[in-house]
């Protein structure tokens, strides 16, 4: 299972309100929405983040400035 699939499954599980829950429905909805937005942005970051992180970090050396 890829990392992404794992994450989306986790999201479904945590997003399902349980009947016993005492948290008001509105707050739950809101929390769910926030979580979905956060996952969405992390997915977008995954798409554009440089894949060669280790070599980029090693080569990102600047002469000191002011």
């Amino acid at each position: 299972m890829s990392q992404k699939e794992k994450e989306s499954r986790k999201r479904d599980e945590s997003g399902d309100p349980t009947p016993e829950s005492e948290v008001p429905a509105g707050a739950q909805e809101r929390a769910k929405k926030v979580q979905e937005e956060a996952d969405d942005i992390l997915d977008k970051i995954d798409e554009v983040l440089e894949k060669n992180a280790a070599s980029f970090v090693k080569s990102f050396i600047q002469k000191g400035g002011q």
């Binding site: 970090v57 090693k58 990102f60 050396i61 600047q62 002469k63 000191g64 400035g65 002011q66």
Partner: peptide
Amino acid sequence: TDSAGNSYG
């Protein structure tokens, strides 16, 4: 900052 501890401002 860079990865070697240099800074520019």
